[in-house]
Design a binder for these strands. Structure first.
Lengths: 272, 272
DNA sequence: GCAAAAGTGTTTCGTTTACACCCATGC
DNA sequence: GCATGGGTGTAAACGAAACACTTTTGC
């Protein structure tokens, strides 16, 4: 019994098999959190089928790459994104999900920070949509989005994935709004703060300074007024409107990388 | 631009494609709980590659079935099992995981009750192995088993999957031992009982009878001695040794189907 | 000065944990 | 009778939920 396939260079259909084969694609649902909204990236299809409709970035898996590598490659090619986190969603294998031929897709979901979002990548070829305002999608991508949202909501309960959606420095109320946007619930401001601080996953972005005269000076030098401070940092701080808003500005925190890795490992103890 | 493939009946390799295609298989990790141990079903491979070695039941996915249908079909063909529960584990797509050609596999995991386990299915072609005593496995099935165990442990924390591994009627200590075997921890007997009863997911297998004289007679009639009772029920009750063991026999419970379905839906509130 | 946003502390309540005692069975 | 396994109750401890007050900022 010989091989089950043959390669015939130059033939119209050079890849020939004893048994029928199906196509394998990857699709990637990319989330970000911007403007106080959870958003997904969609690309407009430039070719049939579903030409002109919105879909997730993806494409056929090559022979020399794993599914994860394929998903990341397509992502780079179509959106220039390099996500900080990527997870497998599952396989979607409905028989007629692609009109061309039998195709199954391996779906992934990825989280990116607003600062990673490159401004004008192919202009109107790719765009972010709030998850509660999604246009009709090609293929079975509506079903895939639904699964991605469910998985994100499941994951964020017990894994510190929220931080992958925020910039490196953020306030606790920012983080809380992210959780509330994803889970669709409301938390008590004070309980949320205490819980997240007790978990040890955060560290203060500005080191704590003893309340003496010298530090007062140092403080007022490095942070003249909060609005001016932010104006220096980022012209228009993506994601959360820091200008033109009332109220006391929140203290900045960043991830405690060590605790973060620990909690990614053993499920940690950060339940919301 | 025409089609991307052609069918040439009678040719040695009748399925011909413009682009290279990979094989797609399904594999199924089947768990049961028997003899106070968590076990998986393995089949001995009858053909190359890895002929004679142990592997999970599975095979190539057909064009006219979804991945789930394919996994269930292979299961029926190779093990005559019809699991009460099946869930997707994920895709394994290492490039060299199959020596024949590029093959990705869609892995599933399924739970069966000991009573569903047919005794001599193909004798030494299929066998149950305790998860802590597994022979070397074909392909990357060791990796798949690892993922399956992790998923089972994750799932059982928040989903009532444990009951799919037990027979219809069981005692609470039985259930506790199952949880302990899967999670590798120990629970306080009394707290476990209270928690599981408070969840409402169990109902008593024998209806509660008011403590009056009549019921005393009825009780002693329907349940002469506990060991005799079990002897009538099942000649050799699979899984848990009910004969030749000391101690008071536990009360029998069964699933409250309604609560069970509810908890499968919205995650419920059964955390261990 | 006022409204809005954010930081901090306290009291209350329910759940979980730890532990003690009693009953039923096999040997 | 004793060891083993199983059923039931209770007090202590911990964490979650509810709630009040103060500070900082924009207008």
């Amino acid at each position: 019994m010989g091989k089950n396939y043959a390669y015939v260079p130059g033939a119209e259909f050079p890849f020939q098999y004893k048994y029928e084969h199906m196509g394998v694609t990857t699709d990637c649902v990319i989330f970000t959190y911007e403007d106080r909204k959870l958003k997904v990236l969609l690309v407009r299809r430039g070719a049939e089928p579903y030409k002109g409709e919105w879909a997730f970035p993806g494409g056929f898996l090559r022979m020399d790459e794993t599914a994860e590598q394929g998903a990341l490659r397509e992502l780079r090619e179509e959106t220039a994104l390099w996500p900080s986190s990527i997870g497998q969603l599952g396989v979607f294998s409905d028989i007629d999900r692609d009109p061309r031929e039998r195709v199954i897709t391996i779906a992934w979901y990825a989280l990116v920070k607003p600062s990673e979002v490159v401004g004008g990548d192919d202009a109107d070829e790719a765009a972010w949509f709030p998850v509660d305002d999604i246009p009709p999608l090609a293929f079975d991508h509506g079903q895939i989005l639904k699964a991605a949202l469910e998985k994100l909501r499941r994951d964020i309960h017990f894994q510190p994935v929220g931080f992958d959606l925020l910039d490196d420095e953020f306030t606790i109320p920012d983080l809380q709004r992210l959780y509330e946007a994803i889970l669709g619930v409301e938390f008590d401001r004070r309980n949320f703060q205490r819980k997240i601080l007790a978990s040890g996953i955060l560290e203060e972005a500005e080191p704590v300074i003893e309340n003496d005269f010298l530090s007062q000076i140092h403080f007022s030098k490095s942070r003249p007024t909060t609005s001016a401070f932010f104006a220096m940092e980022e012209p228009v701080p993506e994601g959360m409107p820091r200008k033109g808003r009332q109220g006391r500005p929140g203290n900045l925190f960043r991830l405690n990388r060590k605790r973060y890795e620990e909690m990614k490992e053993d499920g940690g103890k950060l339940e919301f």
